[in-house]
Design a protein around this nucleic acid. Structure first.
Lengths: 251, 251
DNA sequence: CCATCTCTGTGCGCTGACGCACACACTTGG
DNA sequence: CCAAGTGTGTGCGTCAGCGCACAGAGATGG
């Protein structure tokens, strides 16, 4: 049973899609909705799809609803590290309104689902002439900065097991159910560690009854205990998202 | 002899101070200079001064000129990690114009010098009504995001020695000379590693003739070779700063 | 001049994560 | 039904970085 901090409350299998499933879009004032919504295009986000490679110049930005997107840095020798995760609370493509157009980041779909896509130009027009949407997106970006910074801290100071817990909780917060469709190999790539390391840590969590997994399906059985053993990084990030993003998006 | 990528070209001991020593301030169009410059206050930045603790609500932002400021995350048990460094190419206090006012970050003076201070309200007034300054600050913030993300990558994948090289080069780029006034202990706190580890890595660099240090004074003797052995993280960040910040600030 | 403090060097045992190799179970497709 | 592919478990040697302890050398201040 998902805890109170679940974001998605809709049952994805039956509810019709709506831009308001994305918390940023939902928080827009009525006027902005009217100007943006007609241009939003619902797109499926298949697992593993690369929305944007490092420094690629895509002209689309994405507002995930039921999908989760990972922002990865890939090193020269192919190793990768997830620096942040974006779900229905955010937007993929902050570089466009920050003014740099591209980033040395790769955006990969980490959990299958849907997103609303919009052309950069259309979004920029609103961003540049409308204070509320600008403030909303900038505050979101600040929350993102905190997540990235906290990832740096976590990478430095915390154990693989704690990082796994953080990753699970961050994903869980962005999903409607308590089941994640990911292999341990994928998690390892996100965290930038060995697959065997994830296997060991996940096995430990499973033996403790916190999770249960089976060939690419991880189910969180006891979220409260997961929150007990996770490092502070999760809480810092979560509180910052709650603080910076609109009220109705907080819980 | 400092290489071509030195930012400060002034001799701090003799030249009069000027806001244009900060590259962001220098890049402002004439109109913005006129409205901002009268409100800028030159302040000394003593080594170790804490400009802003985690989530503190200071009403000042800083444009370093000859000083360097570290942005640190401090964990519950007192361990710290530098997530980014700000020198004369940037501004301390992005949270103010990003809309969050505070951040879970501590800003500490890592290298003594000067900065121009300005009241948040005055800066915000310009930020909200003037596109050029807004674009400038947002592009800087995007560069900062890259630096933070790359720090996360570096913490994950690269050796202490490589990280030390990165740290030295990032500092060097923000200083007029090739001498840093820092103890190994301080560097250890920044990198979030043991003092002994820094001692060992620095000793290795010294024996190789790349640096020379003595009780809190580190002199870089061979910058090109340092750039050879540093990890890619340094280059990625540097190129992103060069790309995102104005031409005259690039070299 | 001596006690104290600061900064750095070094040694040692420990541990978390790595790289590799291989086994096993389940799935998929002919 | 069997071969190939996918996802996971496990063992083993290695190593970077940790924590700790202590030494020595220079700085500082009475």
């Amino acid at each position: 049973m998902p805890s109170a901090s679940i974001i998605n409350t809709s049952d994805t299998s039956h509810t019709p899609h709506s831009p308001s499933q994305n918390r940023l879009l939902a928080a827009l004032p009525a006027g902005d909705m009217e100007s943006l919504y007609p241009h939003l295009k619902l797109v499926p986000m298949p697992l593993g799809e690369i929305l944007c490679k490092s420094h690629c110049t895509t002209k689309q930005v994405y507002f995930p609803t039921t999908s989760i997107v990972s922002l990865l840095f890939v090193t020269e020798n192919g190793a990768s590290t997830e620096i942040a995760v974006v779900g229905n609370e955010g937007i993929v493509g902050v570089a466009h309104f920050m003014g740099g157009n591209t980033m040395p980041t790769e955006a990969v779909v980490q959990s299958e689902g849907y997103a609303y896509q919009i052309n950069v130009q259309l979004l920029l027009r609103e961003f540049n002439h409308d204070a509320p949407i600008q403030h909303l997106l900038l505050r979101y970006t600040q929350a993102l900065i905190t997540q990235i910074g906290q990832t740096a801290v976590c990478n430095r100071h915390h154990s693989l097991e704690q990082q796994l817990c953080r990753w699970l909780l961050l994903s869980l917060d962005r999903l409607p159910s308590n089941e994640l469709i990911v292999t341990q190999e994928l998690i390892a790539n996100m965290l930038g560690v060995r697959r065997e390391g994830v296997s060991e840590a996940a096995g430990k969590l499973q033996r403790a009854g916190l999770i249960s997994y089976y060939r690419g399906h991880i189910t969180v059985l006891n979220r409260p205990r997961l929150e007990d053993i996770v490092c502070e990084c999760y809480k810092v990030v979560k509180e910052e998202y709650d603080r910076l993003l609109p009220e109705r998006m907080a819980t």
